[in-house]
Design a protein around this nucleic acid. Structure first.
Length: 295
DNA sequence: AATATCCCCAACCGCCGCTCT
DNA sequence: GAGAGCGGCGGTTGGGGATAT
């Protein structure tokens, strides 16, 4: 990967005098005086340095002017994209966290494919990154569906949930409750919906579930609150906690799906609504009818 | 080890709406 | 009001690394 460098480093290191046919403008930045074709494709380290240097001096506005006067043989659009998606200092690198993934799903259900709006809720994440994330996941699910179709097997999830490019779910955070991870640590998002963590302590208990699919050897793990208020009817269902990505779901074909994949598809198949309950579990009986959650 | 396939993601494209002249 | 220029956005592509066969 290129360049996570500070502006000061760029200023001190960049060497603009590597081409005899270039000349400096009034700001000490080189201008190409030939009419070479615009460059396309991946940016080089030197181009990155030049762009960062120019923006540090002149700001990130007037992209077409910037592209010409900076000496970059790039379009203004290309410069803007490179800056916003990669070079801007506050761009966060690395994999999306589970919290970010859930927030994306939540926001996508509300906003649709308005990636730039969604990105505003995830500091440091770009619309391009979120768009790529969403597309990759949905493509994966579509491939799964086609695989089942070609094998003449029933789809793991209802067709209407699998076939659309933008499956919609709503994760409702009920009342004062907040999604928590297994340690009971509050999941804090940038949305206003999630404002406070539940105070009830969460006790893990391992329960043997032998119903529905008749597999008595499997152990499914669910959670109950200390006061037992939200205890599940374990004879019928088992639920994972919202952020426990170690869970997988097994449908009635015996196929196993990762937590997030199942969440997206089940959410689509239950009229766009699943709930976070008092014990921070996803609770909807229709969800459970699609299969068991396996740890 | 070679080849095929999958997956990620940077970058491009086309369209739309806003602003300025 | 018309049109050019531009920024912003969402959809798409293609290169390259990772993984499977």
């Amino acid at each position: 990967m290129a360049a996570n460098f500070s502006t000061s480093v760029v200023r001190s290191n960049v060497n603009f005098h590597d081409d005899e046919e270039e000349e400096e403008n009034e700001n000490g930045v080189l201008i190409h005086d030939d009419e070479d074709e615009l460059r396309r494709g991946p940016w080089t380290l030197d181009e990155d340095k030049l762009l960062v240097h120019y923006i540090s001096c002149h700001g990130d506005r007037r992209w077409n002017h910037l592209a010409k006067s900076s000496g970059l043989k790039r379009t203004g659009k290309s410069c803007r994209l490179r800056w916003l998606n990669y070079l801007k200092p506050d761009v966060k690198r690395g994999n999306l966290t589970i919290e970010e993934q859930i927030l994306i799903i939540q926001l996508q259900s509300k906003l649709g494919n308005r990636w730039s709006r969604i990105a505003k809720h995830l500091p440091g994440r770009t619309d391009n990154e979120i768009k790529n994330y969403w597309r990759t996941r949905v493509q994966k699910q579509e491939r799964q569906r086609l695989k089942f179709d070609s094998n003449n097997m029933p789809a793991p999830f209802p067709d209407h949930a699998m076939g659309c490019f933008a499956p919609r779910i709503t994760v409702d955070i009920m009342g004062d409750n907040c999604m928590t991870n297994n340690g009971g640590q509050a999941f804090t998002s940038n949305t206003a919906e999630c404002t406070s963590a539940t105070s009830s302590s969460v006790l893990n208990s391992t329960l043997s579930i032998s119903t529905i699919f008749g597999d008595t050897s499997e152990h499914y793990k669910t959670q109950t609150t200390s006061n037992g208020v939200a205890e599940h009817d374990i004879n019928d269902y088992a639920f994972p906690t919202a952020l426990d990505c170690n869970y997988q779901m097994i449908n009635d074909c015996g196929n196993v799906y990762d937590y997030m994949d199942a969440l997206i598809n089940l959410g689509s198949s239950i009229s766009g609504c699943c709930h976070i309950t008092e014990d921070n579990s996803l609770l909807d009986k229709q969800m459970a009818k699609n299969g068991l959650w396996k740890r």
